[in-house]
Amino acid sequence: MSGYLKIDHVDKTFTRGSQQTEVLKEITLSIDRGEYVSIIGHSGCGKSTLLNIVAGLVQSTRGGVLLEEREVDEPGPDRAVVFQNHSLLPWLTVYDNVRLAVDKVFSGTKSRAERRAWTMHNLELVQMAHAKDKRPAEISGGMKQRVGLARALAMEPKVLLLDEPFGALDALTRAHLQDSVMAIHQKLRNTVLMITHDVDEAVLLSDRIVMMTNGPAARIGEVLDVPLARPRRRLEVASNPTYLKCRQRVLEFLYERHRFIEAA
């Protein structure tokens, strides 16, 4: 298969003065349309940098990113990002935060009423329509992340980029939100690239898990297929032998072969 989103031999080196730090080395990855791919690795391995390169927020040093056979090297709504810390604009209401994106992306193609309806539709998709007139400071962390997800979905992106979207949430809220993301993925069949450091999250949500070696000069260590049927249910899957085997593989990779050695 040719691949819908292709990350092609990407290197990233940060230069500060005369000091050069090689962060990513020879990253090549091909993602199909509708696929849910997670990137997992220890902190500091450059996985967020990789996501930012795909988003266009950071330029790669060598190599490039192809979306539908076209090179993308600047940010755009076709690769919507859900940021780790929600990044909602605090002076806008929940509705206006999503509407800002809708207005920008569909200014030429949708009428005012259609844009309004589309905004509400996406808020309903993440079950946040009830809080549409609240400001971000008045809703909980999980709710903010939902709105951030609604904003990204509302752009109708070709690829949805999730940068540790559940990282800042407590375990219960996280599980709840993961279920929502699974349901939305099931319904809309988006292509998703997610950064995570949570093994269970990666196995539960992904079709494929990309495991990265430790930096500096992090590479793709291993790519694991997760052949679990969808829809997946958290409780049923937890005792599924395939699930356990996948989980075991990722854990072995992270904790035995590429153990994170903290610089002492």
């Binding site: 755009g76 604009l89 800002l100 920008k104």
Partner: peptide, 24 residues
Amino acid sequence: DYRNVAAVLRLNHLEFFYKIMIPS
């Protein structure tokens, strides 16, 4: 974060000025 949001949305300079900069 706000700059990233503006970049992903491709806000132009004027929109960035009055939608992000001034309120922030």
